[in-house]
């Protein structure tokens, strides 16, 4: 079935792209297109003009400096999987990217597109939430940074203004004592959309105390979300088997899932508890319990 007709603007620099967007803020940015083109074809999304970000080389880079890792919005999932700095400072993101759609999609789909498109099931979102990622937005008005936790506003809704482009994702460098684990439930092992996904990260100090905890969930609410109450259960009681079970229960209670073709709301709530528990038990095994 043919796509509905649209115009396509293909700027070669970020400057040209944000100028074009300022002149016509109704344009729909297209990054890898692996979600947008499917939704345009299915008439779930309408767009008169697409702004193709694919020719803007400056949005592709992945860089590391003394305090953060910066992933260009147009870095593909495959780029992320191959990058040694991401492997060192954001292994949680790598774990999620390994289970992201299929190899063919991973060669097109981008980190920036996955976040900006704001599907509740965006697989890059939970790991990036758990990594305290910040997104950078640019427009002719300037640049601003928004914590990823504040970025998602609803299904397909974000804090991005119509004249802004998401240009990069900033992730703090990993600190010593960081442990992370990821779990995704799909209906098949590969090439699947998440029924539920869980990203967990803790920082354990020399005495084995849990200094920080992050638990983020995907596909179980209108937006990918962090569950503060569940995180607090770990920082309060330490990284133990009992705390893991408590945190998993609290995480499941914080969900507001829907029934859809991939599963019912009740099922999603139950598997959230199981996935969180399994991820946290992996962390306990890796270094919790007052090592």
């Amino acid at each position: 079935m043919t796509l509905p007709a649209f115009e396509l603007v293909q700027p070669r620099s970020l400057r040209d792209a944000i100028d074009a967007l300022a002149a016509a803020p109704g344009m729909e940015p297209i990054a890898g297109g692996t979600s947008l083109l499917v939704d345009l074809r299915g008439a779930r999304v309408k767009a008169e003009t697409l702004l193709d970000l694919g020719r803007i080389d400056e949005l592709r880079g992945i860089t590391i400096d003394s305090h953060e890792l910066v992933i260009g919005a147009m870095a593909t999932i495959a780029d992320v999987l191959k990058n040694p700095a991401v492997a060192e400072h954001a292994p949680l993101l790598v774990e999620a990217c390994r289970l992201f759609a299929s190899p063919l999609v991973r060669n097109r789909a981008t980190i920036g597109g996955n976040l900006a498109y704001a599907s509740p099931a965006a697989d890059a979102a939970p790991p990036l939430l758990a990594l305290d990622a910040v997104v950078e937005l640019r427009s002719v008005r300037g640049r601003r940074q928004v914590a990823l936790a504040e970025f998602f506003k609803g299904v397909r809704k974000t804090a991005r203004k119509p004249d802004e482009l998401l240009v990069g994702i900033h992730i703090p460098r990993a600190v010593p004592g960081t442990l992370s684990a990821y779990r995704k439930l799909g209906l098949r092992k590969a090439d699947s959309i998440s029924v539920a996904s869980v990203a967990t990260r803790v920082v354990v100090d020399m005495a084995g105390r849990c200094q920080a905890a992050r638990i983020a969930l995907g596909a179980v609410a209108p937006v990918p979300l962090r569950v503060a109450k569940a995180e607090a259960a770990l920082t309060r009681h330490g990284l133990t088997v009992e705390a893991a079970a408590d945190a998993a229960k609290l995480a499941a209670e914080a969900t507001s899932p829907i029934d859809d073709v991939r599963g019912t709301a009740a099922y999603r709530r139950r598997v959230t508890e199981t996935l969180v528990k399994r991820a946290l038990l992996e962390l306990v095994e890796k270094g919790g319990d007052g090592r």
Binding site: L37, V38, S102, P103, L104, V105, R108
Partner: peptide, 22 residues
């Protein structure tokens, strides 16, 4: 929809779904 890979081509050596490339 990018689910089946029947339309795969290599684009500069990388395998992609040609239904999801303009």
């Amino acid at each position: 929809k990018g689910d089946c890979g029947a339309c795969a081509v290599l684009l500069d050596g990388k395998v992609v779904n040609s239904c999801l490339v303009l």
